[in-house]
């Protein structure tokens, strides 16, 4: 039982350590003029390698430069400072460029 729990914890931790891309569902993101603040803020962060804003499906994906996840509190602050609310943050396996290609945009 202990081994099983340890395995689960290790799995969970390794997901967070090695995940590179985070997908943020954003509430209120209805126009590019307003959403540019999100892109500008994430782009100016040297720890973030790539950003993709998807207006059609109301989400933003970011990829860290060092392979570590970006702190969720920090992400929430960026989104809130741009005037929006965060509905959900999750780690996804695709890179930002793969997601960009998948949605055929930009």
């Amino acid at each position: 039982m202990i081994k099983k729990n340890l395995l689960l914890v290790t799995l969970f931790l390794s997901m967070n350590i090695y995940a590179q891309t985070q997908r943020i569902e954003v509430l209120g993101m209805v126009c590019a003029f307003c959403a540019q603040g999100i892109e500008k803020s994430f782009s100016s962060d040297e720890n973030i390698k790539d950003v993709f804003v998807n207006l059609e499906n109301y989400f933003v994906v970011i990829e860290s430069r060092d392979g570590k996840s970006i702190d969720e509190k920090y992400i929430t602050t960026i989104i809130t400072d741009a005037g929006y609310d965060v509905q959900k943050i999750e780690i996804v396996s695709d890179s930002v460029s793969e997601i960009r290609e998948k949605y055929g945009a930009n």
Binding site: L27, G28, V30, Y58, G83
Partner: peptide, 9 residues
Amino acid sequence: MRVNKINSQ
């Protein structure tokens, strides 16, 4: 006041 919904503001 601001109300952010998934598809409106």
